[in-house]
Amino acid sequence: MGNTVVKICGLQDVEVLKSMLNLSVDYVGFVFANSRRQVTAEQAAVLIQQLKDWQNETRPESVGVFVNPEMEFLDSVMAQAPLDVIQLHGQEDAAFCHEVKDRFGVKVFKVIQVQGKGIENRSNSFEQQIISKEYVGAIDALLLDTFDPIYGGGSGHTFSWEQIPHYQSWSKELGIPLFVAGGLQPSNVGELVTKYRPYGVDVSSGVESNGMKDIEKMKEFVERVKQI
């Protein structure tokens, strides 16, 4: 019961983070890519310090979300905001993932963008790269998100969940945990977890009200996941 891990992404506010102290959240995400939830390294440093101040054995790990970043940019961010995980949301190849992992000594999460009604051609060739096993040893988790042509993710829309088993079989074979994101919210996450049992779920807009993180929605989301 409650084995599925929870990642809440798009945190920007220290007071919101403080309000999450008693939530059973495993990862919190800070977005450095172009997004209305984007933070600077300076802002992330303050948020990460807040996490470190939690006198809690199970404090969440910090995740930085990037889309096709330059290594120099990662250097500058990590120097100010020492993240636990770097999540790569673009077309980063296995060599880049390996380099990030070795350079910073962090976990690396790789995102595959899945079309709402099937995988589009551009994503399909990328999927073949993933399944070529080049990413084994370079990534610590695979994350499925709904394709968004503007921001590369965080669209608030679900993709066709029938595609999940295809990726699950690959992740199981190689021992790489699978997260599912894209349009999750308290009203649908229970169905997803019950039916597909992913390693983890990732939510952002689904726990917001008027563009701001909503503690009641976050609480409900976590409870729905952890009670299964």
Rank of each mutant, 00 (worst) to 15 (best):
G105S: 11
V106F: 12
V106M: 09
K107W: 11
V108P: 04
V108H: 05
F109S: 13
F109G: 15
F109E: 05
K110Y: 09
K110W: 03
K110R: 14
V111Q: 04
V111Y: 11
I112N: 03
I112V: 06
Q113V: 00
Q113R: 08
Q113G: 05
V114F: 08
Q115P: 10
G118W: 02
G118D: 07
I119E: 01
I119N: 01
R122E: 12
R122S: 12
S123F: 00
S123C: 08
N124Q: 05
F126Y: 08
Q129T: 07
Q129C: 07
I130W: 00
I131V: 05
S132E: 06
S132D: 09
S132A: 09
K133I: 03
E134A: 13
Y135Q: 03
V136K: 05
A138F: 02
A138R: 05
I139D: 14
D140H: 12
A141E: 09
D145R: 13
D145A: 12
D145F: 12
F147R: 15
F147P: 09
P149M: 15
I150C: 10
I150S: 14
I150E: 11
Y151E: 15
Y151A: 13
Y151N: 14
Y151D: 15
G152D: 14
G154W: 01
G154K: 03
S155T: 09
S155E: 10
G156S: 12
H157G: 03
T158G: 00
F159M: 02
F159T: 02
F159Q: 01
F159V: 01
W161I: 02
W161S: 02
Q163T: 10
P165W: 05
P165Y: 06
H166G: 08
H166K: 14
Y167E: 12
Y167S: 10
Q168E: 13
S169I: 08
S169K: 08
W170P: 06
W170M: 09
S171C: 15
S171E: 06
K172Y: 04
E173K: 14
E173Y: 04
L174G: 00
L174F: 13
P177Q: 00
L178R: 03
F179E: 02
F179D: 03
V180H: 00
V180E: 00
G182T: 02
G182L: 04
L184N: 02
S187F: 01
S187C: 03
S187Q: 07
G190Y: 06
E191R: 05
E191V: 07
V193W: 02
T194Q: 15
R197K: 13
P198C: 11
P198D: 15
Y199P: 13
Y199Q: 13
Y199L: 07
